[in-house]
Design a protein around this nucleic acid. Structure first.
Lengths: 337, 337
DNA sequence: CTGTTAGCGCTTTCAG
DNA sequence: CTGAAAGCGCTAACAG
């Protein structure tokens, strides 16, 4: 393991100069610079990041808070994988690594805050695991640049990224309306979750705009999971007045709904048209394929990386980033597909 | 940011003693130990990991090599998410963090090896992305403890974890045989991949054991993806002599196969029974549900963590770990489900 | 443009 | 059981 001192000696310069070659190349004589670089390559010199971090307080690492406690649902959402990869890619393009924070049992007292401090993390990205851990608020307040994914985090150095849930829901309802449906119900996410609430709002807004009535019996709450969607659809089917279309606020629930409809001996989309939300992989694999509102998953990662790096570089917290959603039409709303 | 010096001063002891309290508590007087710990908590002292790493060469970080280049398929496999979480959890239980390595553009020259050295990573886990990057071999040879997931890595400080692909395939074939099927075909993974080759071998072995003939026209190669499974099944259906069961070496391909069968106007499992491999989430969401060979996804992570930590602690490379698979029966092989 | 000099915060002999 | 002292490898003023 060659050190900077060794490399300096070999080149007949001081360690400081070598350091400059790597951190502020412009300021050092071109000839020496080349020589140092050449020699560095030759002896396989690599600056030691721990030493650098110790001296500069910059680690070039961003922490990822992702509570994957198996007792909570949510951690399996296929969604996260793409976000994660997008994030990793975008961060690495900017010279940062991603450190997956683990609370190693000591869930107790602000494990995340501590990890951030111990490791000199430059920033943090938090994936919403659907729970509200008070220590996360403290993390955001601790001053590290923080970006929430689908989780509203605010502060002088904190912001968040989310999808246009309202707009997406409106897109879904409008699409069903254009397909001639008029009795449009919805299966919502849990009312206390942000996406759940926002998608319901979008549904209502678009209904109003279209001049369709708001029918309370057409709004059933689900849980974002398969079984919840299944149960909710059964309730909708049991009512006297059956909807001819349902906007389901999450694809997994939509799959559950699809099954419930089939069990009732009805057909999709002939009897009931369905539009989901998320565009998870399964959506394309079902038959009929699931029409859905696609979220820009990779965009989440990119936007988060941009925001956190900007704040690391001293910028104020950028405003929340609302990513556009888009309608993907498949068989569940279109007999021809 | 309290430092060790400050804490020492406050306690009226030397920094060395404080250091001992955290690294070798047994050796320090109980009273002082308690006092130091109390004061540490009070002023919020946390040992700085960079300084520690600089002094000890141990970072308590394990690197994750996961080539998610979008030009390659495979990175999306839902499989990985569970492995990743299992790995993270198991590592953190042992006091290690997971650093997601990114080759930040410089795919070029051994980016991984360099990252490992720069960051003093204690070990590395590599997820097979289906390609054979020569730099990974060099990584394994560079001496860091290495564990491959589904990728045979060998060396004095390298080992790997994989599923019992042969046994799983045999399980699948036996199950179909027990269900009364005799014309059992298979859709394989690419022959050059290890799981692809092994599952085919298992299929053949079990056929022999059962006294069923090996019929070349019943072996069609797929690509582990939806479209490959679809195409392969169409080829099987186009033949004069149709199989009454198919062992599909991957769930995604099985979904494609399911669609191809439906398009041909045939029914699963009545006309053709299907068994997949992996037990990805979709398997349970299809209708009929997909009978499949489940891999122990979380077990991958745990086994990898165990192996890498053992080697970090000086153990020799443990032998490859072959995880058992298990049959999950659903509707695609069982009319009653 | 370059070298000298102090650290960054912690660990680790080596004495005592 | 404890303290003093010497680094780990790098950066950052400050002179020159």
């Amino acid at each position: 393991m060659a050190t900077i001192r060794e490399l300096a000696r070999l080149c007949g310069v001081s360690p400081a100069t070598v350091s400059r070659v790597f951190n502020n190349p412009g300021v050092v004589n071109a000839k020496t610079r080349e020589q140092v670089l050449r020699m560095a390559r030759q002896i396989g010199y690599l600056p030691n990041q721990s030493a650098r971090t110790l001296a500069t307080k910059k680690s070039f690492m961003v922490g990822l808070v992702w509570d994957t406690d198996h007792r909570r649902p949510g951690w399996r959402h296929p969604f996260f994988q793409e976000i994660l990869i997008g994030l990793k890619t975008a961060l690495s393009g900017r010279g940062y690594h991603l450190l997956m924070l683990a609370t190693s049992g000591e869930k107790s007292h602000d494990a995340y805050v501590r990890a951030v401090r111990r490791h000199n993390l430059d920033g943090v990205v938090m994936i919403d695991s659907g729970t509200w851990d008070p220590s996360l608020r403290r993390l955001a307040e601790s001053g590290v640049p923080c970006v929430g994914l689908d989780r509203p985090v605010r502060g002088p150095r904190a912001t968040y990224v989310t999808s246009d849930n309202v707009g997406g829901a409106r897109l879904a309802v409008r699409h069903l309306h254009e397909r001639g449906r008029r009795a449009i119900a919805t299966i919502t996410g849990p009312a206390h979750t942000r996406p759940g609430a926002e998608r319901l709002r979008g549904y209502r807004e678009e209904l109003s705009r279209l001049g369709l009535p708001q029918r309370p019996e057409f709004v059933v709450e689900g849980d974002f999971y398969l079984s919840g969607g299944h149960a909710a659809m059964r309730r909708l089917l049991a009512a006297d007045d059956r909807p001819d279309a349902v906007f389901v606020a999450g694809d997994e629930m939509a799959v559950g709904a699809l099954h419930a409809i089939a069990e009732a001996g009805l057909k999709v989309p002939e009897d009931i048209a369905l539009v989901g939300f998320d565009d998870i992989e399964v959506a394309a694999l079902m038959s009929p394929g699931l029409t859905t509102i696609a979220q820009d998953k990779a965009g989440f990662g990119t936007a988060a990386a941009e925001a956190v790096v900007a704040m690391i570089n001293g910028a104020d917290a950028p405003p929340p980033r609302i990513l556009p959603t888009r309608l993907v039409v498949r068989g569940s709303s279109s007999p021809s597909l």
